[in-house]
Design a protein around this nucleic acid. Sequence first.
DNA 1: ATGAAAGCGCTAACAG
DNA 2: CTGTTAGCGCTTTCAT
Lengths: 348, 348
Amino acid sequence: MNKRKEVTIYDLANKLHISVATVSRALQNDRVVSKKTRKKISDLAEELGYRSNHFARNLRQQQTNTIGVIVPKLNSNFITSVLAGIEKVTTEAGYDLIIAHSSESHEKEVANANNFFHKRVDGLIASLSLDTTDLDHFKPFVNKGIPVLFFDRVEQDGNNTVVIIDNTKCGYVATQHLIEQGCKRIAHITSSLKRNVYSQRYKGYRDALFDNGIPFDESNLIVNDLSEQAGVDSAMEIMRMKPLPDGIFIVNDFVAAVCMRTLKEHGISIPDDIAIVGFNNDAIGKLIEPPLTTINYPGIDMGEIAARNMINHLKGISNIHTTNTIIVRSELIVRKSSLKKGNGHPQF
Amino acid sequence: MNKRKEVTIYDLANKLHISVATVSRALQNDRVVSKKTRKKISDLAEELGYRSNHFARNLRQQQTNTIGVIVPKLNSNFITSVLAGIEKVTTEAGYDLIIAHSSESHEKEVANANNFFHKRVDGLIASLSLDTTDLDHFKPFVNKGIPVLFFDRVEQDGNNTVVIIDNTKCGYVATQHLIEQGCKRIAHITSSLKRNVYSQRYKGYRDALFDNGIPFDESNLIVNDLSEQAGVDSAMEIMRMKPLPDGIFIVNDFVAAVCMRTLKEHGISIPDDIAIVGFNNDAIGKLIEPPLTTINYPGIDMGEIAARNMINHLKGISNIHTTNTIIVRSELIVRKSSLKKGNGHPQF
DNA sequence: ATGAAAGCGCTAACAG
DNA sequence: CTGTTAGCGCTTTCAT
C-alpha cells in the first residue's frame, strides 16, 4: 500500500530506450553490459528511487537466498555469540538471515519451523527448546531436501548434522575438578535430561564420580527449568540435604549465580562450605562473588562453523550429510567459586 | 534448489479437474466456494504437501505483511523484553516479523535499513545504535509513506513517532535519591550524549544537582561505550578523582556491575564509600553484591505499545503521525548499593 | 459456484 | 553487447 507507484525495470528501460534485459543485467553488474550503460542505468535507478523486487526475483529464481535460524532464547551471551558467528559467515556469502526464537517451547518451535518452511528458507540452523519432544516439525525440510543443521541442543540420532561440544567430557572435567578440590558429596543441578547437553553432562558427572570411587546418590540430582525461581528452589533443596553437599556442578551460569546468592543469604560460605562450578562462561560469572568457575565454549566459532557448513552445502562445495558431528573445543575456567585449595588453573 | 518440484495450485486444480481460481479461493477459505470443494481441495493440498508461495502472493498483492525491527543489540534483557512485546502483538495481528541488530554501529544500521527497504517491510520499528549520527537511512521509508516508529533510543525532532520513558525524570530521580542518601560529590558514567536516552538522563542528573544547590563539576562526567573494558576504565578514572566521589549514577546496569567489581577490588566499600545507582533493571543487578539500585522500565509494554501503534496505523485504524510521543512508566528500584542510611523504598 | 485470463516484476534462454 | 520473450505461482476481475 505505497503512496507512489513503485519504479520497475520497465520504467528504467523505457526512460532510457533500452530493453529490460539490459537493465536487469546492468543491475546485477553483469560485465557483459558496457560500462557506460551500466552507469547510466544505475544512476537513473538511484534517481528514481528504484528498488528491486525480491518477490519477483525469488519467484523467478525459485530460491530465496535466505537461511532460517531457530534458537531457544535470545537473551543469553552464548546464543548471541552464535548468532554473530552465523551472521558473519552468511553475510559474507550473500545470504539473508531470519532469526526466530522458541522461548523454550515446543509449540513455538513448531510454529517457527512451519513459518520458515512456508517462507522457503534455503537452509535451517536450529538449537532445540527445552520442551521439544520430537523432531517431526523438521521432517518437511528433510523431505524436500532442504538442509537442516543443529547446534548445541541437538538430537544425535545420526540423521542430522550437528555442531556441539563434548558435553560428556565437560561434565567429567567439571566434576573431576570439584573432586580434586576435595569435594566428596557433589550435587548436580541440571535441566531436562531429554536434551543431549544436559544428559551428557550428567553422564560425565557420573563417570567422574565412578572413576573416583564416589558412589552416586540419586538425591543429589536436581532437575529444573533454568529460571530464576528454579535457582532459588534448587538452593533451598540443597540446604535440606543431609549431609550438606560440599560441591555442586550446575549446568548454567545464571542458575549457578542465583543459587549462590541464595546459599550465601543463608550463611553458607562459597567455596569453603560448598564449591560451585557453572557452565557457559556468561558475563555474570565474573561479576558475582566469588567469581564463578565455569566451562567456556566459543559460541562465535560454533556459529561460524555451522553457517560455513550450511553455505558450503548449499553451494555444492561439500555435503552436509557426509560430516555428521562436529565437535568444538571447550575448556574449564577456574575461578574462586570452586577453589577450596587456592591452587593452579587446569585447562584442557 | 529443491529435490522434488513444488506443488502449485495448478497441480491441485489439475488433479481435481477444477480451475486454479477455485483452488486459490478455497485455500483462502473463501465462503463463495462450496464447503465440499473446499474440503476436497484442502485435503489434497495436505496430502501433496502443498505450500503456498509467499513470493507469488506478495508479488501479486504488492504487500508483504511483514514488519521490520532494528535493535542495537540482542543480548540485553530490555531488548528481548521489547521484542517479546512486539512479537506478541504482531503475531496476533497476523504480521510477520524480521529482526535485525546493528551491533551499535551506524554502518550496520544503515545496511539493515536498506535491506528492510528492499525487502519491502510494511512498517519499521527501530531503536538507534550508539554510533548513529543521522537518520538519512530512514528517509526512503518516509518518502514511500512506509511508517517508521522509534523506541527507547530515538531522535526527537518532532518528525517521528517515538515510544520512550521520561529519561530526564529518571535521571533526576536517580540523582535525587543519591543526594537524599547524603551524597555530595556524585559522578555520572554515561555513553554517547548524542543519544536522547543518555543526554536526557544527564540533564536530569544536572537538574537534580542544581535543585539541591550542588555545583556541577565537569570532571565528574565520564562518557564511554558501555563495554566491559569501559566499565573497568571508568572505575579507574573514578578512583583517580580527588576527592573521591561518594556516589555514582551509571546509565547501564552491566557497566555499573563491572565498575562496582573494580572498585571493590581496590578496597572501596559500596555503598559506604561510594553509593551506586544503575539503570535498566537487568537480571545482573540482583545477583551482584551489594544488589544494585536501578531504574526499571517495562520493555514488554514498550514493545506492545510500539507494535500496537504500528499495526493500527497499517490497518488505517489510527494514524501514527497524530500521536507523536508516547511515554511509558518507569520507577526507581532501591537496593543496597545506594543505601547509606538503610531506609525506605521510594517509588514513582 | 466456478472458470478464463491478465498481470504482478524479474531472469534467463535464445537470437541477433 | 543488446533485445525478445516465456514463464515463475498467485490473485482477482469479469464472465458464465
